[in-house]
Design a protein around this nucleic acid. Structure first.
Lengths: 256, 256
DNA sequence: CGTACCTTTGACGGCTGTCAAAGGAAGTGG
DNA sequence: CCACTTCCTTTGACAGCCGTCAAAGGTACG
């Protein structure tokens, strides 16, 4: 959890960023601050104010039903922008809070507009980031609705492993995973009781074991197999648009 | 189904568009063509080529599991852009096809880049459109994972009613709904058998009745109640950003 | 050292899936 | 215009995954 990722590194995943673009992103990170575990970053129905760049720690956005059930919508890892998906809304649709302690950089949500006005490549990178988050959501939907709890857990663990591995070296025998069984249930839409039973079964079968804040993956092959895992939706490749972006650059449309 | 909506009207939902922006959008609609019911617009894993503006008819994007189950990810109505969510991907993540016959306007996906370079307000409108589609997806996830089939159907019908009502006058006693029971199952993640049973029950209780291509809503109040429906996520309001956009305009950053 | 949260396990019930079969409705081709 | 095919709708029987309720032990933190 001590690993920190800047927004530059995260946005640079899709294609190289110009120096001017880097400076624009740096401005969003001017006010880093610590955020405690469980700290709320915003609440549903609140008028939009600041969004946050997550530099370290894990966070999530959630929705509650009126019967008191809670569903995690997205899991944010270091380098992600918290609230990007709803910056065009007047009021927040979700709640957001820190899963583990970390560092966040708040910035006014309207600053995204300036960023869009200032740099086309950066804007495309924002679209890419939103698109990836949305792909995660689609995939989760597919899995939660059509696979058993065992497959869902397997899928989520592999997906998270791959996302993490893009940020830092990760050992399958000790993968960071600061997620309680209750929270895992809220991510997958399962009861904590059933999560527990399924985790015990996975452990008995020698496939994986969850500890307090990390997971030991013992049999990655079987884990992938039972998750029916195809990671194409996690790809950062973006060849097609790079050509068009380069063309803009030549015409001097984007910032120098 | 004969009702057509231009992309201009759809994008203009969020705030007024300048004449220059309207012209940019018009260029995307230069090549309207008929699309048959069931026609495929793209397939998963295919390299991205053209995206489509949906002018009339209903369409959807789907994902298949390797066990042959099919999940609808998003339902597109006239005025929506098909593929906007994945224009930054190298390959398609979903399949897309027409639910009912309609008119689509294909355009190269790279043109979005030019559009972003040309107009900040238009780009913000694109973010707004993506954000709304994503809110639909989050809400669907919440409902499918935490409510019974009866509530899920009620929720989807009301949501679709509200979306339609933004495009054309809709009579609750004869709401267009060209969706088979099988497809409804693929939208909600339920088996067609169970969809059928639940629809019959809703009909017996005098709440709503689905016909071939339309729905009769008999008791909207009870339908809303059992759906636990809160439509805030469907709001098009965007006050906060309009101020910032106006500021850009004064400084002459956006096109005249 | 106590309080709060997390984990674990058992018993029981129910919503929903699967399998199977039959009756419509719609479109196709002769 | 009629046979044929195909897809959609409908219903019954049965099974199973998972939720709820309840209770106890463990662990962290103040």
């Amino acid at each position: 959890m001590s690993h920190a990722t800047s927004i530059q590194a995260a946005m640079g995943r899709y294609f190289g960023l110009a120096g001017s673009d880097r400076r624009l992103l740096e401005r969003l990170e001017r006010r880093p601050r610590r955020a405690a575990k469980g700290e709320s970053l915003w609440s549903a129905h609140a008028v939009l104010g600041e969004l946050y760049i997550l530099q370290s720690g894990w966070a999530c956005t959630i929705r509650d039903t009126c019967e008191g059930e809670r569903q995690v919508i997205e899991l944010l890892l270091p380098g992600d922008i918290l609230g990007l998906r709803e910056f065009t809304f007047r009021r927040h649709v979700t709640d957001a809070y820190m899963i583990s302690p970390g560092i966040v950089c708040p910035f006014p949500h309207e600053d995204i507009v300036d960023l869009v006005a200032a740099s086309t490549p950066l804007t495309i990178a924002l679209f890419a980031a939103i698109g990836r988050q949305e792909a995660l959501l689609s995939e989760r939907m597919l899995v939660t609705l059509h696979h058993t709890a065992r497959a869902q857990i397997a899928h989520f663990v592999i997906e998270t492993f791959i996302r993490l591995a893009k940020l830092q070296p990760v050992d399958p025998a000790e993968m960071p995973f600061p997620i309680s069984q209750r929270l895992l249930g809220q991510i997958l839409g399962l009861s904590p009781v059933h999560i527990n039973r399924t985790l015990r079964a996975l452990e008995r079968d020698g496939i994986m074991k969850k500890h307090k804040a990390f997971i030991v993956i013992q049999d990655e092959a079987r884990l992938r197999e039972m998750a029916d895992f195809d990671g194409e939706y996690l790809s950062d490749q973006m060849d097609g648009l790079r050509t068009r972006l380069a063309a803009l650059d030549v015409r001097g449309v984007t910032g120098a």
